[in-house]
Design a binder for these strands. Structure first.
Lengths: 216, 216
DNA sequence: GTCTATACTTCGATAGAC
DNA sequence: GTCTATCGAAGTATAGAC
């Protein structure tokens, strides 16, 4: 996503340079924002990481907020697509286990994106107000309706409130990216390995599916 | 916790003033740090919220980091006490449901503390390194051992990895404080009410207990 | 398009009068 | 113990030469 290959030929080398530099800057910015927060990250550090003079960043991006929003919008584009294509006819067991596996996987492969998103939300999402407008509640309602249908069909226990099941899916999977420091400290490891993530996925899948009354 | 009442009489009024002002400053700092992060919060804003000149804060606290650490240590003191007193002889169903209820409740009543803690972790916990030392892994190991004993006794399904069950408890309950903005936007509400938290607790308790194979 | 040098602002921290 | 005035560092942003 951050490394789109320019399809143009050398007829407009300027555009090629621009795209290449923009992606270099975005990647450096992603790292800095993720590890220091919006205010904590400095244009200086971002420029240094990108290997460019500070002024170049201002040439490509209007200002610090503009750069941050560019990073954020890349992240949003990656986000909730995972829950988009579900219908009442789908098998809830399949949908849930696939979602859990994907999201844990995503947390492992894109920890920076996850953390920037988390930091933004923890601070009250000051730069994502328009993302969380009414259509967001509508979109969410569309998802809970599907889960509600499954409850009506007896495929999920009636004790389960669809809204809170979705929150549980979000929280339990993101946790592995956002709170990685605490998890590593608890497990006494410097890095988590493949087996840890398999255990995580297996345990989450077992508890959530069985807990919803979904037989597999 | 932040509002300890001074037990002393008027023999040392100075101490009374100090404690009162320190608690006022700590409370203001908690609000600012929670909504802007460590770097994002400014001593100026904290002073203004506390209704004191900026220099007074430096009189009571060594520097910005010292103030932040004072806030953090208050929060840590509140933290993991909930899981401390469990033994293999306890009933896992009771322990888990009590833990979930308490932690959701805590998230509602202390959202600021939860968010400061979360922001610190998301950014790699640069100021909590010594909290996450070896004894933390030991403490954690003590907790998982109890859960492991329950698994051996057949009280919890063997598919459940104790470590990841604890991570699930942490993530699912904290989520209601840390990601409150997203939850409110999804539900289309300005504030969550009593019923929302009851639904959250009920759904989480049902899924996690049943998912662990705990019959009640 | 690139980069140096610099203007402008904010912030943390302290000196020193009261 | 309180508060004003100020210093120095760091950060964002831009002007202008190349």
């Amino acid at each position: 996503m951050l490394f789109k290959i320019d399809a143009e030929t050398s007829t407009r080398p300027a555009g090629r340079i621009r795209q290449k530099n923009e992606s270099i800057i975005l990647r450096a910015a992603e790292i800095e924002f993720a590890s220091s927060g919006y205010k904590g990250a400095s244009m200086n550090d971002i420029a240094q990481r990108a290997g460019l003079p500070k002024a170049n960043i201002h040439y490509y991006f209007k200002n610090k907020l503009g750069l941050y929003m560019a990073v954020i919008s890349d992240i949003i584009a990656l986000w909730d697509s995972t829950l988009n294509a579900i219908t009442p006819e789908d098998d809830p067991g399949e949908v849930l286990s696939r979602y859990i596996a994907r999201k844990v996987c995503f947390s492992v492969e894109n920890p920076l994106a996850s953390r920037i998103f988390a930091a933004e939300l923890v601070n009250g999402a000051p730069n994502m107000k328009e993302y969380f407008r009414e259509d967001y509640a509508q979109w969410f309602r569309g998802r809970t309706d599907v889960f509600g249908a499954w409850v009506s069909q007896g495929k999920i226990d009636p004790e389960v409130t669809p809204e809170h099941l979705i929150f549980l899916l979000w929280s339990s999977t993101q946790h592995y990216a956002d709170f990685a420091v605490q998890i590593k400290a608890a497990l006494g490891k410097d890095e988590l390995d493949e087996q840890d993530y398999l255990n995580a996925t297996a345990t989450l899948t077992h508890i959530i599916l069985k807990g919803c009354g979904i037989s597999r």
